[in-house]
Design a protein around this nucleic acid. Sequence first.
DNA 1: ACATCTGGTATACAGCATATACAGGGAGAG
DNA 2: CTCTCCCTGTATATGCTGTATACCAGATGT
Lengths: 270, 270
Amino acid sequence: MANPERSTELLWGAKGRGGLNLERIVRAGIELADAEGLAAVSMRRVAERLGYTTMSLYRHVPGKAELVDLMRDTALGTEPDLGPPRGWRADTEAWARSGLEFYRRHPWLLESAGVRHVPGPNSIAGFEQALAIVAATGLRPAQVVAVVGLVGHFVESAAREVVETTRIERRTGVGHDEWWGARDSLYQHLDRYPTLTRIYEEGGFDEPLDPFEFGLQRVLDGIEALIRDEVRDETRCAVCGKVIDPAETGRPRAYCSRACQQKAYRRRKV
Amino acid sequence: MANPERSTELLWGAKGRGGLNLERIVRAGIELADAEGLAAVSMRRVAERLGYTTMSLYRHVPGKAELVDLMRDTALGTEPDLGPPRGWRADTEAWARSGLEFYRRHPWLLESAGVRHVPGPNSIAGFEQALAIVAATGLRPAQVVAVVGLVGHFVESAAREVVETTRIERRTGVGHDEWWGARDSLYQHLDRYPTLTRIYEEGGFDEPLDPFEFGLQRVLDGIEALIRDEVRDETRCAVCGKVIDPAETGRPRAYCSRACQQKAYRRRKV
DNA sequence: ACATCTGGTATACAGCATATACAGGGAGAG
DNA sequence: CTCTCCCTGTATATGCTGTATACCAGATGT
């Protein structure tokens, strides 16, 4: 993937000379987006930041849409792993939490999330990670896929909420005030919203629960209920997914065969 | 709210004469967005559709952002209600389903959902509806708010997925093929994604579960678990939320007092 | 009768993505 | 060495976008 010639050129070329690169363009785009949001990423701005003309970019990138695709997948690539496995629930939680952290670092990804989303290798790697975690529950394959989709979309949605909130708070100082200021015009029609009124008066909006933490526990509870209903009490091999027939004595088996045990060991070692 | 003069003008002016209106502009914007997506809504296009010049719109609307806000709230206004109450779970499900249906009708709302979202009266009305449903569970106020947020965001997220899928399928004919076509380049690196490979081979992607139906049941299950843990076995008044002390004989009480019973009756009647 | 306001128009400008034409430099062929 | 061709970067132009500014006709108020 990483052309070594280009990489050294990228690492050592520094100041601006050394010619234009795909990598340099993508990096400049990401920096711009991290700092000022996706809307600030225009071909002009990216080119300016690199000291070239607008059209020079088109020698390396087909168009803006593709640039954004590349930016997304590249940004994904710099993420850490989740540590040692501790059961599907803890692992899924860790996966979700790292996803949130990721969106926090690159909020602009949320702005372009609705669009077509051509999956790059790094994006697929995250998908694989989640599939492996959830597959260990023993759910049926289609259910595994659905669960991963559910959690993934939940993270995206919650991140959108959290990021938006912090952005507004940072921009308007307090934030809460502005929100309730806009609500002032509502107070005249409050009789039309009796439940809203009651919940407001009971302080339901004073200290809102963290939407990510709250929602995540609900979603995981829901998945747990599904597992309880669907999965017979069989342990399954983390490598191949086959049912493991339980050992009658001694330490419970974790793999269905020596082959899978070895495979897991090798994978763990690299 | 609805200026009768303007409304009659709007209803009877028909063909194009009768002058420009806020309502006509907003309606034209919605029609355009429904047909061609939010990206197609430009001041020029809206004006053309009405037979006026671009700048004429600015006599009635401060700018495009405000026009979109108005479009959103107006679109929300034409939605049906949910029928008679049948318990929090069925009601929440109905609310979510109507939300999905709404997004299906106006997919462009999803494109502008991430943004600041100034809440209009109709949007608040939907919020009130959901609050009333969830408040009947007896959860604490902050929890009620969090649950409504969770379900609302889930609907938005699932709708995005569903709408996107149908759009791609409609545009590219089959859709599935295109998706797996893009995956062709992946097959060379499949050894890097063992779980993905296994799930694919087991048919986990062949007949994907409906993300809305699947996710909704998980989310509701999670909420149900929360209620089971949090709520003592007390029935609560749907009007004021107070605890109802149970009737020892006869039909179970639904309201905490005659006053609330009457209030509910009056509200139901209008 | 005159001023002011309202609603619609025409023109202009800055920003955007990108198509097209062109220029210099390096590589390879004759 | 020269000629050609490709690769890379540039300059210019087109057609979008939102909107500022200036103008103009007609209605209304005084």
